[in-house]
Amino acid sequence: MYLGVSTKLKLFEDPWKIKKTLTLSDVNEHLCQLLLRAGSMDEHIMAVWGGERVEHVNNMRGERVVVWDYDTGCEHELVFKKWHTSKSFVLVDNWVTRFVRRRELRDGDEIGLFWDASNSRFSFRVLARRVLGF
């Protein structure tokens, strides 16, 4: 008889809710942006934020956010905003210097992000490096 209680044991929940394989445009020195799909961002970020933060993200100014580099223990400030033309989100303003160059990111690398509500910041991690020669 089912009593509404699950007996399924969950040992691990992947915190990296937003995953992306970097493209050439993400690591391009001249574009200076990380492009993020609207679906993931709406579900995992905008739904949690609400209010004034969402208004800032939706206007041209964007919202200043802290991004914690989980691998190196460094904090960096970037700007998070929505591009209405493509209905995508971007992290800009130091993306290239603070992440692409410093972490030697290349197209084909997989990264992960999530919103750490307890510390009010994004957490960032390199999940996998592209195998050179492929």
Rank of each mutant, 00 (worst) to 15 (best):
Y2L: 08
L3F: 10
V5A: 02
S6E: 05
S6M: 11
T7S: 12
K8I: 15
L9G: 03
L9V: 12
K10R: 14
K10V: 15
L11F: 13
L11A: 09
E13F: 03
E13R: 13
W16Y: 01
I18C: 11
T21M: 15
L22V: 10
L22D: 01
T23D: 10
L24K: 15
S25L: 15
V27F: 03
V27A: 01
V27M: 01
N28D: 15
H30V: 10
L31N: 12
L31I: 10
Q33C: 11
Q33G: 05
L36T: 03
L36N: 08
L36C: 06
M41P: 06
D42S: 07
D42N: 13
E43A: 14
H44F: 15
I45Y: 02
M46T: 06
W49I: 13
G51T: 09
G51E: 14
G51Q: 09
E52G: 07
E52R: 06
E52P: 02
R53T: 08
E55A: 15
H56F: 15
N59S: 13
N59W: 06
M60R: 14
R61P: 00
R61I: 11
R61W: 05
G62W: 01
E63S: 06
R64I: 06
R64P: 04
V65S: 01
V66H: 05
V66Y: 01
W68L: 05
D69S: 05
D71G: 12
T72M: 09
G73Y: 02
G73F: 00
G73W: 05
G73M: 09
C74A: 13
C74K: 08
E75C: 08
H76P: 05
E77N: 01
L78R: 01
L78P: 06
V79T: 14
K81N: 08
W83T: 03
W83F: 13
H84L: 06
H84Q: 08
S86G: 04
S86R: 11
S86C: 07
S88M: 08
S88D: 10
F89S: 05
V90P: 03
V90M: 05
V90K: 02
L91Q: 02
L91W: 06
V92K: 13
D93C: 06
W95M: 07
W95S: 10
V96L: 12
V96K: 05
T97S: 14
T97R: 09
R98T: 04
R98V: 04
F99H: 02
V100N: 00
V100P: 00
R101S: 11
R101N: 12
R101E: 11
R101Y: 11
R102N: 05
R102H: 04
R103F: 01
R103P: 00
R103D: 07
R103W: 00
L105N: 00
L105H: 00
L105F: 00
R106G: 01
D109M: 08
D109T: 11
G112D: 03
G112P: 14
G112W: 09
W115F: 15
W115T: 07
W115E: 05
D116W: 04
D116E: 12
A117G: 09
S118K: 12
N119P: 00
N119Y: 06
S120Y: 07
R121N: 09
S123Q: 05
F124W: 14
F124N: 01
V126H: 10
V126R: 11
V126P: 10
V126D: 07
L127N: 02
A128S: 15
A128M: 14
R129G: 12
R130C: 11
R130F: 03
L132E: 11
G133V: 07
